[in-house]
């Protein structure tokens, strides 16, 4: 009997261990604990302008710590009014062998266009995950719409500059079948709601990517991360930086987000 009691006590304590991060939140008065979903929505507004926009993403791939590949993408993005999901048009500007190739990411309607062969090829959600354009999803994804957030607790975390940041630790579960990742762990700075770190998981629970949001600067009226460091959790030697520049508000009509517009998309 006493053994059972000890076991129950240990299990009770173990449960608290399991919510160890919550224990860390004990210094936060419950009245100050924000709603998890509101935090994610606030972070979405920081990552993404609220109007249709374009930007230039420069992805530099580091292998074994050394820069190796550079890909420059021109991204046109807008939030769909009905679904609140981001639609993207991506045009490759570099490397030279890929110049002019384009990708449409519009809900489940995803196409790749190669101007050399004039071929439009439909791509699957899986291909979206493995392509370079998938790194763009880390930036232009409406997480508040696609995920149900749960507050794990308050934690102190080092950002990419090794500076301590007091963060909310959130656990996001996919709430929409079109959500790209099955689960995301997300750390947002308390007070500013700025994303500091994200961990992105597949359906099988496999950790795919770790992202550090970095280099905050004012862009289009809001202080936003202009560099995202993406650590590949599958390929241990691969780290990609995504530097965002040339933010512009731009009208993006509905008609742009379909296969037949891809050959017409210009970067100038």
């Amino acid at each position: 009997m006493s053994r059972i009691m000890v076991l129950i006590v240990l299990l009770g304590l173990a449960a608290r261990v399991g919510s160890g991060a919550k224990a860390q939140a004990a210094d936060v008065p419950s009245t100050e604990t924000p709603a998890a979903q509101d935090l994610v929505a606030a972070a979405d507004r920081i990552r993404n302008p609220q109007q249709p926009f374009r930007l230039t993403d420069t992805l530099v791939e580091y292998r074994d710590g050394k820069p190796r590949d550079r890909v420059v993408l021109i991204v046109f993005a807008r939030e769909e009014k009905d679904t609140r999901q981001y639609s993207n048009l991506v045009r490759y500007a570099e490397p030279p062998r890929d110049a002019g190739k384009m990708v449409l990411l519009h809900g489940s309607n995803m196409w790749f266009y190669d101007p050399a062969s004039k071929a439009s090829v439909r791509i699957s959600p899986q291909q979206r995950l493995i392509g370079q354009a998938s790194d763009g999803d880390v930036v232009t994804a409406n997480l508040a719409r696609d995920y149900t957030a749960k507050l794990v607790g308050a934690e102190s975390l080092e950002d990419a500059d090794r500076k301590d940041r007091r963060c909310w630790h959130l656990d996001l579960a996919a709430a929409d079948p079109e959500a790209i990742y099955s689960r995301i762990e997300y750390w947002l700075e308390r007070g500013t709601d700025q994303p500091v770190k994200g961990k992105y998981y597949s359906d099988s629970g496999r950790l795919l990517k770790i992202a550090y949001f970095h280099n905050y600067q004012e862009q289009l009226g809001t202080v936003r991360p202009t560099e995202t460091i993406i650590i590949d959790a599958v390929d241990a030697n691969l780290v990609t930086t995504m530097t965002t520049s040339d933010y512009r508000i731009q009208e993006l009509p509905d008609a742009w987000f379909q296969r037949d517009f891809l050959p017409r998309l210009k970067a100038d």
Binding site: Y62, G65, I231, V239
Partner: peptide
């Protein structure tokens, strides 16, 4: 895992 060149 972040390359040294990137760590400001």
């Amino acid at each position: 895992r972040i390359p040294k060149a990137l760590q400001s």
